[in-house]
């Protein structure tokens, strides 16, 4: 469940970075347009992987239900961070996705 939430969070951060109005909010420096173009497909990829993982971990019936729950929590967290502490979003996303991937490989 925590893995799902953290992966959804990272995917949402990628979506958010793909939108110019939020990118300025979060990052201090400019990013090359080449990188920006890859952000959205990458986000979809990560989201699909999370969906796959939810089914793998919890089965066809419970998995998707939990995935939506995880997405809700992740998006709410991201929106609150964007509003009140925008600058810590990128480092937090990196830390969280690292923790998630470590826990996948260990657990």
């Amino acid at each position: 469940m925590l893995v799902l939430t953290s992966l959804s969070f990272s995917a949402m951060v990628l979506f958010c970075l793909a939108m110019s109005k939020h990118r300025e909010q979060v990052l201090a420096h400019q990013v090359s347009s080449l990188v920006v173009r890859f952000l959205r497909p990458l986000a979809w990829l990560l989201l699909s992987f999370t969906a796959y993982l939810s089914v793998e971990l919890f089965g066809w019936s419970i998995g998707p239900a939990l995935l939506f729950g995880a997405l809700t929590i992740a998006i709410l967290l991201l929106i609150l961070l964007l509003t009140y502490r925008a600058k810590i979003v990128p480092p937090l996303a990196i830390v969280i996705s690292l923790l998630a991937s470590i826990s996948i490989f260990i657990g």
């Binding site: 469940m1 925590l2 419970i62 939990l66 729950g69 995880a70 809700t72 929590i73 709410l76």
Partner: peptide, 16 residues
């Protein structure tokens, strides 16, 4: 069917 964490998420989503 919800376990402890999923139950909290249900609760939380209900509050949303």
């Amino acid at each position: 069917f919800a376990g402890a964490i999923a139950r909290w998420i249900y609760f939380f989503t209900g509050l949303i």
